[in-house]
Write a protein that binds this DNA or RNA. Structure first.
Length: 113
DNA sequence: GGCGTGACGTCAG
DNA sequence: ACTGACGCCACGC
């Protein structure tokens, strides 16, 4: 009924949710895991994104502190550039304000913009 | 098919 | 606020 991908493998559900993240917004690994039906598997979300070859807005997924988890020279710069390019703001502590840029899909059918 | 690694998150100290 | 231990388990070798 709802647009929630509640079927398929955990991996498939994770990718489905990530594809839904709107441009200019971010979501945490834990959020994706919870949306995919397994709140304790935040760590696996990272592993899945790492191996996901298909076109995917993987850069819109960050950690619960609002910071990029990838190491410098290991993807950090790329992810940050992609986000800033979409208008996501990083403060002086390299942190994104989740209250402003965090995306939280409504459990109903409405759109959260 | 076992095993080490690790894009996370939570909790105790 | 910071640190370490641990649960969780996908992925690659």
């Amino acid at each position: 009924m709802s647009s929630h991908p509640v079927s398929g493998s955990f991996r498939a559900r994770v990718l489905a949710w990530v594809r839904r993240i709107p441009c200019g917004r971010v979501v945490t690994y834990g959020q994706i895991a919870a949306l995919a039906g397994a709140p304790k598997r935040a760590r696996q979300v990272g592993a899945i994104l790492r191996s996901a070859g298909a076109p995917l807005p993987w850069h819109r997924v960050i950690n619960r502190h609002g910071r990029i988890s990838l190491p410098q020279m290991g993807g950090y710069e790329v992810q940050r550039a992609l986000l800033q390019q979409e208008g996501v703001h990083f403060d002086e502590r390299d942190t994104v304000d989740l209250l402003r840029f965090g995306w939280r899909p409504s459990p109903h059918g409405s759109q959260s913009k």
